[in-house]
């Protein structure tokens, strides 16, 4: 059997009138890989996912999922993939349990297995005591968790997640990523009758995950990433590759006494041409300044800050975070 990537997109293009939402993008996702698909709002992420799922016909190009042509074999692919859409994957007027039951039955899970999976999903989502709550009464974070629980109920081979952790608290986001890792690293077991032969034939690989997120710290944990902007892929590779290739300089982390003030002062210095910095970013209570060979400017920065009555605090050169890279990419 020829080697097939889990997802293969060739020259994928979609136009809406004059507007090209997705513009000849190419990528592949290997089995058992977490593939992060990052881009600003409106860059074509959701359109791409819709084409990958066969919800939208590509204008040009083709998509293969699990070695099958999406346009032709939609019905064969659907049972083997899971999808969590950005906002609306649950029925608001159904209870938590009813939603899960519906998902499970729709994917043909047998009763005992379904009960087991539902119990697991409830546990993962931390919703054990809320089975009978109507979904519209859940908080935003809980809703996302429930939607994820529902999407993996049938243990899909490929999981498409469109901003699964939006609005989810940090604790649950971590639990969620732990779970993703577990899914990816646990070999698929042919629990359902369908497709068992094929699954056995494939090697011991876990779930393939195609994920979009706006949390760059999360994205950092993907195996591979693609940045998309204006419908084009502008960078791809492992997080480290992207960081080393795409970063316009080093990052100096400063913890000044007044972070917002420090940004102002440094920006004006930058505008006056006193400091040749690429980027000055407020990062919580910290400030990141980015420039090639940053240590050259350390002294100047200290002086400028002190002159404005701001204590520069500790300054360390750190590995750039993906967020720094992302923003740098989007701005260039």
């Amino acid at each position: 059997m020829d080697y097939q990537p889990a997802i293969l997109a060739k020259d994928l293009t979609k136009r809406f009138g004059d507007f090209t939402a997705v513009d000849h993008i190419n990528f592949n996702v290997q089995h058992g890989e977490i593939f992060g698909f990052l881009g600003p709002n409106g860059s074509g992420k959701t359109t791409t996912i819709r084409m990958l799922l066969g919800l939208m016909k590509p204008g040009e190009g083709s998509v293969e999922v699990l070695g099958l042509k999406v346009e032709k074999d939609t019905s064969k692919i659907r049972p083997r993939v899971g999808y969590m859409s950005q906002r609306f994957s649950l029925y608001n007027d159904l209870t938590v349990l009813q939603n899960l039951n519906f998902y499970g039955q729709a994917y043909g899970l047998e009763n005992s297995l379904l009960q087991k999976r539902i119990a697991e999903a409830l546990h993962m989502a931390g919703l054990e005591r809320h089975e009978n709550t109507q979904t519209r009464d859940l908080s935003g974070g809980w809703r996302q968790r429930l939607a994820l629980g529902a999407a993996i109920l049938h243990r899909p081979e490929v999981l498409f997640l469109d901003e699964p952790t939006a609005g989810v608290d940090p604790l649950s986001r971590r639990a969620f990523w732990d779970l993703l890792y577990k899914l990816v690293s646990t070999p698929l077991q042919p629990e359902t009758n369908q497709a068992s032969l094929e699954s056995e034939m494939r090697e011991q690989r876990g779930v393939t995950v195609f994920i979009t997120t706006h949390y760059m710290d999360e994205a950092e944990h993907s195996h591979r990433l693609a940045f998309i902007q204006h419908g084009k892929i502008i960078a791809s590779g492992s997080p480290i590759e992207i960081k080393t290739q795409k970063m316009p300089g080093d990052v100096l982390e400063i913890s000044p006494s007044d972070a917002a003030g420090a940004v102002k002062v440094l920006r004006s210095a930058q505008n006056d041409g006193k400091l040749p910095l690429n980027e000055i970013v407020l990062y919580g209570s910290l400030v990141h300044v980015i420039a090639p060979d940053i240590l050259r400017h350390e002294q100047a920065i200290t002086v400028i800050l002190q002159n404005s009555g701001i204590q520069p605090g500790v300054m360390t050169v750190i590995e750039p975070s993906l967020e720094d890279v992302f923003i740098a990419c989007m701005k260039s």
């Binding site: 935003g140 609005g167 706006h214 917002a260 407020l282």
Partner: peptide
Amino acid sequence: DEPTTGVDPVSRREFWNILTELHL
């Protein structure tokens, strides 16, 4: 209430720059 949920990092920073401005 969670004004930046689902917003990309660039827009999120812009959003917070506005908030900081208002705060000041």
